[in-house]
Computed example of a mutant assay.
Amino acid sequence: MNLDFLQQKLNDRIEKGNIRSLKTDGGLLDFVSNDYLSLARNAQLSQRIHNRCLEEPVPNGGTGSRLLSGNHRWYEEAEELLQSVFRAESVLLFNSGYAANQALVSSVADKGDTILYDQLSHVCLKEGAWLSRAETVAFRHNDLDDLEQRMQRVTGRCFVLTETIFSMDGDVAPLHELVQLCEKHGAYLIVDEAHSTGCYGEQGAGMLMEEGVAESIFARVYTFGKGMGVHGACVAGSRTLIDYLVNFGRPFIYTTSLPPHSVIAITESFRYLAEYQQLQGQLLKKIELFRTHWPKAMSHTAIQPVMIGSNEQARVISSQLQESGYDVRPILSPTVKSGTERLRISLHVHNSDEEIKTLAEMLKQLMS
């Protein structure tokens, strides 16, 4: 079998310096993971999850889609809890944030509708839009004027896609203004809370809840593999929306359900955070500490981009930091736009103050 056509594309990546490969952490200090609240490594939470799975007759796998054999009682328990946390009329669990966004966006918009998405939205939101039969148009990142101009030219129903915290720049969407604009034009606003779930809001309910705009959002997507330290995701919205997704969301209908162990982990993670919400304050202190010692900081969130501007230089500085014991990875084009290559530093509760200060000092030396 001739695989030259695949190898050629790989060779092109190698020549451009942006070939991807899998790596383990190698025991380095973690400044790369999305485990912002350190719940993925929390031994007490792990023991709670383990104890429940020992005490209850938990199957090893989901056994089928939720519409067949996979709708175990632990799903109902988790969705009831999440409905309360997010103060939503209804909630539907998904296997991942990627699946949730893809199912939601691809199914709610139809031929004759228009989807307007922030150009820096995660690829799963964009792919959901492309899989729908609607017209899809990007608007400039967080640019309300550009968005409104495009809203004035849409046909059919208008859906607007954005995120609370963007994964590469760590910046925040203008949530109140977006809500007002969508209400003005009768648009349906869909917001992905992937990087704010757990880190903001009472019981980890996210930034939309903290900002008091959640009830104005057509659909909210929350993921649990980042701040919550476990796995899975959910869509929160009206009962009508959730019933619709059960019937028309293909990634939900045709996927084997999460195993009960994962669903129990979601429940126990939110229960744990409700008891230890001070973790959010601890994370905010780590962020401010980094900003104090790295004057070029661009973000007020746990995601701190350090702009480099070339694939080669980003790789070099990343390697130097790793040689010093700090796991900081480069983000290269085409993942980000050429010329905006960077280091993406993630801050966590488990990073010590001394580690954060030392990292900032090393950055000053390496980029001087």
Rank of each mutant, 00 (worst) to 15 (best):
S262P: 00
S132H: 07
D4T: 12
D327A: 11
E323K: 14
Q203S: 04
Y200Q: 07
S216D: 13
G281V: 09
L147R: 02
Q277T: 11
D327S: 13
V191S: 02
D143K: 01
R271F: 12
T301S: 09
R150W: 11
E77A: 10
P305F: 13
S310Q: 13
S269D: 05
G237R: 09
A100V: 04
V58R: 11
C182T: 14
Q320P: 00
L125H: 03
Q203L: 03
L93K: 08
L175G: 02
S65Q: 03
V235W: 14
G201N: 00
Q102T: 12
N351L: 08
L161Y: 01
L289I: 11
S196H: 05
R315H: 10
I266T: 02
S132Y: 09
A129L: 11
L273A: 06
G227Y: 07
P174Q: 14
S65V: 07
R342S: 03
A360Q: 05
S333F: 10
W74E: 15
A360W: 08
L3H: 06
L67W: 08
G232E: 12
E56Y: 12
D146M: 04
T292D: 12
F31H: 13
S107V: 08
I264W: 13
Y98A: 13
D192T: 11
L258C: 02
L343G: 01
E354D: 11
F224Q: 10
C53I: 15
H348E: 09
V349L: 14
L189E: 05
R157C: 01
Y276W: 09
I190G: 00
S368C: 03
S310M: 13
S319Q: 15
P59T: 12
Y36P: 06
L68I: 14
R157T: 01
N60K: 14
R48D: 09
M151N: 01
I253Q: 11
K337Q: 14
R344T: 12
S132V: 02
P295H: 10
L359Q: 06
H350A: 15
E275W: 08
D146P: 02
Q8E: 15
S318P: 00
E77Y: 07
I217K: 07
R133I: 00
L279P: 00
W130M: 10
H293E: 14
V123R: 05
G339N: 03
S21Y: 15
E127T: 05
I356K: 04
L45G: 05
P251H: 13
N71W: 14
G26Y: 05
R153D: 01
R315M: 11
S269R: 07
W74F: 15
E177C: 05
Q119V: 15
G186E: 05
P334S: 05
R153G: 00
L279Q: 06
D192I: 03
D327P: 00
E215T: 04
A129Y: 12
D113C: 09
L45W: 14
V336Y: 01
M151D: 02
V179S: 01
V123W: 03
T136F: 15
K296Q: 12
H50Q: 12
T267M: 10
Q47L: 14
D243F: 03
I14M: 09
S216G: 00
V91Y: 07
R73N: 04
E210Y: 08
Y117D: 02
L37G: 07
L39N: 06
G281L: 15
Q365Y: 08
A219V: 10
K16L: 10
A360G: 01
R66I: 09
L241P: 00
I242H: 02
V154Y: 03
E76S: 14
